[in-house]
Amino acid sequence: MENTDKWIYTDMDMERRVLELGFLPFFRCGIRGFSIEEMTAPELWFSDEEDGPWEWKGPVIREGHCAYGKMFNKKAGYVSLEWLPDLLNYRRSRHYAKDEDTAALDDVVLQTIISEGSTTVKELRRLLGFVKGRGRKSAYEPVDDMPEVGKVSLEPILTRLMMGLRVVIADFEYNVDKHGRPYGWGVARYTTPEALYGNMRPNRTPENSFERIYGHLRSLFPDAPEKRIMDLIG
């Protein structure tokens, strides 16, 4: 994983590495060299002159060969469409909400995203009635005793939905200057894997999917600590 010939210099390089490995965290994950952060040519990780991994996220998603979201221990990363069905199959057999109330709130957000097709956080807040007096109401009523805006953060909810592979990031949207050039941090647009890629469930049990993923990661990293492998699988 330290071979500089495999370093990422372009968005095509980044996509190629995801397709080669099947799974690729964006940030360091405890397995040396196994992240876009560590594979990127140092001068491009944060550059004022050239685009780098931060700007390439949207283009790689739009190519349609890799899914992106907070999928690795609540941190961002990619999975190739070759491996997405098994990861989805396994993750959907698990529960990421701590209790029934949290699960109910997660489902309200999920059903809103499904109804809309895709949304940003700002759109979700409006649809769920977090912004009073503006916009139309959601088709989905808030759960009983839902806290007011400022007391509910959508980020943990979306992270749980992404960890469970109920939701992925469809693209990033940017503000545009007077010359038509995008600037600033991209705003994520959320959707479901089914809306973006179609039905992804394989004809296998979640346990079989886990075994396939575990075997693949073990073959890539035979000396990695067991905990690190399990953290990646989620």
Rank of each mutant, 00 (worst) to 15 (best):
D5L: 14
A97L: 06
Y90H: 10
N203M: 11
H216E: 04
S118N: 14
N199P: 09
L44N: 03
L232F: 01
L84R: 05
W185T: 15
R160L: 01
Y190K: 12
F27N: 13
Y9L: 13
N199R: 11
M162T: 09
Y190I: 08
G135I: 01
D13L: 08
S219C: 04
Y78L: 09
P193H: 02
L232K: 04
L232D: 02
V176E: 13
V108H: 01
Y78R: 10
G64E: 06
D86S: 12
M39C: 07
R212M: 10
G69K: 04
D145F: 08
Y197N: 06
L44F: 04
R92D: 09
T192D: 08
V121T: 00
T4W: 08
E100W: 07
L84A: 14
S118R: 15
L124G: 01
E100N: 12
Y190G: 06
S35M: 03
C29E: 07
A224C: 02
K70Y: 05
L44I: 04
E155K: 11
G184D: 05
D223W: 04
G180K: 03
P202Q: 06
M200R: 09
W185A: 14
V168A: 11
G186K: 04
E123K: 13
S80W: 08
T120L: 02
L105G: 04
P222Y: 01
D171I: 10
P156E: 02
P42V: 00
L217I: 08
D48H: 09
M163L: 14
T4S: 12
M200D: 07
A195D: 10
V108R: 02
N3C: 11
S153V: 04
P59W: 03
Q111K: 15
Y214L: 13
Y96P: 10
W83Y: 15
L44K: 06
S138F: 01
R166W: 12
K122C: 04
L128M: 15
E63W: 00
P25I: 03
L81T: 13
